[in-house]
């Protein structure tokens, strides 16, 4: 029996913040530091959830609705994305398009929440987020098209059965590379954005949420963690087929794959510097190019 969908969603809900802890630990190891506890993201979330909130006098209900809507949209995507054997909780033809547009809804909420504060810094973050995601979204769609062309399916359940490792086509290895670049861009990681920077002028995602506090900030941070989980799960699904045949073991492998993705993110963050902002579109163009080559080669076969 495959792991039921509820269990998969619960796993994601519980373990998502741990991904941030893993990334941090990998970076600490690379830097020769001891690093914070793996459970630190959980402690941060609980601390935020127990606090009061400060709201700018400029803001309207949009600012307060933004964290709720964004988290709700991200959680809705979680229902659509499979992990390991057994399909997702809700599946229909073209569900990957709905998933991408739900992520756009989450982004729209945060972007509008940022603009609601009237701060030039948050406007700047909103503008960058909107622009870079306008480039990342087509790249993500291209990756899905590569998988669709190789699996001949249009549901996430079929697309994410580990085409890259289970097929003998070497060009499919390009799709996970593109997907990984999109993952870095969409989750505001180095080299696109630096979540730990201290200078507002250089931020993208962090600068948009400068004014959020208390439970609102907790919602946004938790949403970001779940979003990272979703992208890691998609990447795992694109690479890793069910290997053993035992559903529980395969599920455990898939979860391990998700954490392996997070570790990769940590490695990239440790060995790379962040790109200058005008370079970011070129990085995303690279992702598009990788996916396009993979797509054409897959079609040509």
């Amino acid at each position: 029996m495959a792991a039921p969908a509820v269990l998969r969603i619960l796993t994601a809900l519980v373990l998502a913040p741990l991904l941030l802890g893993v990334i941090n630990r990998v970076k600490a190891i690379f830097a020769g530091r001891q690093g914070r506890r793996l459970s630190q993201p959980y402690r941060d979330l609980f601390k935020l959830a127990r606090k009061g909130a400060v709201y700018s006098r400029t803001t309207t209900w949009i600012f307060k609705a933004a964290p709720v809507v964004s988290l709700a949209a991200i959680l809705a995507v979680l229902v659509l994305v499979p992990l390991g054997p057994g399909g997702p909780a809700l599946s229909f033809t073209g569900d990957f398009i709905l998933a991408v547009y739900l992520l756009a809804l989450a982004r729209a909420a945060v972007v509008l929440g940022a603009l609601d504060t009237g701060s030039s810094f948050e406007g700047m973050g909103a503008s960058r987020e909107a622009a870079f995601s306008a480039l990342a979204e087509p790249a993500l769609f291209l990756c899905f098209l590569v998988l669709a062309a190789s699996t001949h399916g249009l549901t996430l359940g079929v697309l994410l059965r580990g085409a890259a490792l289970s097929s003998t086509a070497p060009e499919l290895a390009l799709a996970p590379i593109a997907l990984f670049i999109v993952l870095l861009a969409e989750n505001s990681r180095i080299p696109v954005d630096d979540p730990n920077t201290h200078l507002e002028l250089t931020m993208i995602h962090e600068v948009m949420i400068l004014d959020h506090s208390g439970p609102d900030l907790a919602f946004i941070e938790y949403g970001a963690a779940v979003k990272l989980w979703i992208f890691c799960a998609v990447l795992t699904g694109a690479v890793l087929p069910p290997l053993t045949g035992d559903p529980w073991l395969d599920f455990a492998l898939a979860v391990a794959g998700v954490f392996a993705c997070a570790a990769c993110v940590g490695v990239v963050e440790s060995v790379m510097a962040r790109l200058r902002l005008p370079r970011v579109p070129k990085l995303l163009a690279l992702a598009c190019a990788c996916a396009t080559i993979a797509l054409i080669l897959t079609l040509w076969r």
Binding site: A49, Y55, S56, R57, E122
Partner: peptide, 15 residues
């Protein structure tokens, strides 16, 4: 979560 917690109004963070 916000019930019983202090909720204040202030100006936008201006760095």
């Amino acid at each position: 979560l916000l019930r019983g917690r202090p909720v204040r109004a202030f100006r936008t963070w201006d760095c």
